[in-house]
Amino acid sequence: MTQLISKKNLRLDGRKLDELRPIKLTVGVLKNADGSAYIEWGRNKIMAGVYGPKECHPKHMALPDRALLKCRYHMAPFSVDDRKPPQPSRREIELSKIIREALSPAIVLEDFPRTAIEVYVEVLQSDGSSRIASITAASAALADAGIPMRDLVVGCAVGKVQDKIVADVSDTEDKEGQVDLPVAFMPNLNLITLLQSDGALTKDEFEKAFKLALEKGRYVYEIVRDALLEGFVGRKNEKEGN
């Protein structure tokens, strides 16, 4: 088995146990979409686009009391080592659903009855924890579209690798490590909207990992804040004033 963590507690890519990969987020990157965001998270390269609120098609799917949220998580055929067939896999269908459910608590869907809000996530290159990077980018794209939201949704995937709890699981760590535990949440409302795990965790390990995910998610939140500030105001460090 590959040595994933060195004796000095460094990971394959040189990170410390609780260190995130570099994250770069830009909003407003597409012309046609009502809102968009592009995220590079480690070697993940993900484009999120939002359309809406708009007329709902097919019409019979429209909801009388709120907007219909539609979501598609899709991986480009060249995004992984082997070619991924272009038709949606079962994994992509499941992820589309849980990403939609992670975003939906944040959106004020009641404001737009009978309309549809479409969220497209296109994974151009995948490198572990892509669902969290996708949610982060999609929530920034929704904000960019000016869709009313109670909060942003951010997150972090933590994991257990060689019996150690690590933050921001990479591709190799996901495949060869013991546990992957993605968490997405709304930082202001303190509400977890995505939570999954696979692999064995004791009670203490879970609590440690969960806490780490929330702490690192808050760091990701600051990155999203900066990106939206940069995108809308073009400068950082806006202070209260008159």
Binding site: A106, A143, P148, M149, R150, D151, L152, M186, P187, N188, L189, R225, L228, L229, F232, V233, E238, K239, E240, G241, N242
Partner: peptide, 12 residues
């Protein structure tokens, strides 16, 4: 006096 600041969804 008008207090003005940049806000994001969820901000207090």
């Amino acid at each position: 006096k008008v207090l003005r600041k940049f806000v994001l969804p969820g901000d207090l």
